[in-house]
């Protein structure tokens, strides 16, 4: 068995996967609420190469940025907005909502923010840091119409991504705990702001360069292992010539196994 060949090949596959993950991060760098991912690897066996252990998402807070959208809300702290569509639930940190005809606040792909309905006669909307939603109605009156609740998970990293910035609960993530924003240690809501993705373009570019170099180095490893095998195969012809019987495999030859001693004659 050509161990180096397969070890180097696992290395190439690993760097390929790293590049895929970075490409996905870069593609979503401008998506509000997107969380960057990283592929992780570990060594296997005795010089057998590397193994992909999984993809980890970093829920590090993204920068809050003034967006000016009339219904934009960002979460400063932990937690997710709870969304609903066709009876299914999903969670996001992207608070880029638009008001739809039925008065609900929806994401671009139709997911509805749970528990909030804006009256038809509202002229302006405001969200307080504790999640209470106020509207100005005709006649200059200000009404509290809803309170945005956030979903907390015991293990947010085990949520399943179902879109760029959209997640579904899994058994491993635990069930969503519904909390109100604004307490002493609780997250706060920032109205008129959006949370940028936590992807750093410069770091991603550097990671691409590193992965490319490592990929090339592993490709050299594959080439070298292949070349050695070729030389060993060419030798078998000499060996046949020498002993008049073929060695059972080149591997035996390469591992220093030499059938007869004093083998110089024909």
């Amino acid at each position: 068995m050509n161990r180096a060949l397969y070890a180097a090949a696992t290395g190439m596959a690993a760097q390929q996967q790293t590049l895929d993950v970075i490409a996905d991060n870069l593609a979503n760098a401008d998506v509000p609420g997107f969380k960057r991912a990283a592929a992780t690897f570990g060594a296997i066996g005795d010089n057998l190469g590397t193994l992909a252990l999984g993809v980890r998402r970093s829920f590090e807070q993204g920068k809050l940025e003034k967006s000016g959208g009339p219904f934009d809300v960002a979460i400063d702290g932990a937690g997710f907005f709870a969304l609903e569509r066709d009876g299914r639930r999903a969670y996001t940190r992207s608070g880029s909502f638009a008001r739809s005809a039925d008065g609900s606040l929806r994401c671009a792909d139709g997911w509805r923010l749970r528990g909030v309905r804006i009256p038809a006669d509202a002229t302006a909307v405001d969200v307080a840091p504790d999640g209470r939603v106020f509207v100005d109605v005709t006649g200059g009156r200000r009404l509290e119409v809803a309170r945005i609740r956030l979903a907390l998970f015991a293990a947010p990293e085990r949520l399943q991504p179902i879109g760029s910035a959209l997640f579904a609960a899994t058994r491993e993530s635990g069930v969503a705990e519904s909390i109100v924003a604004g307490g002493a240690r609780a997250p706060k809501l920032a109205f008129g702001m959006l949370e940028r993705s936590n992807v750093s373009i410069i770091e991603a570019m550097m990671a691409i360069l590193t992965a490319q170099r490592a990929y090339e180095a592993n490709a050299k490893g594959v080439q070298a292992a292949d070349e050695m095998q070729r030389i060993a195969n060419a030798m078998q012809i000499i060996a046949n010539d020498l002993h008049g019987h073929p060695l059972s495999s080149t591997a035996e030859l390469v591992h220093g196994f030499w059938p007869n001693r004093g083998h110089c004659g024909r």
């Binding site: 290395g11 010089n47 180095a217």
Partner: peptide, 15 residues
């Protein structure tokens, strides 16, 4: 030597 170097290279990204 090749086996070991190739395995080292393949683990360039293993924490």
């Amino acid at each position: 030597r090749l086996d070991v170097s190739a395995a080292n290279l393949s683990n360039a990204s293993s924490a």
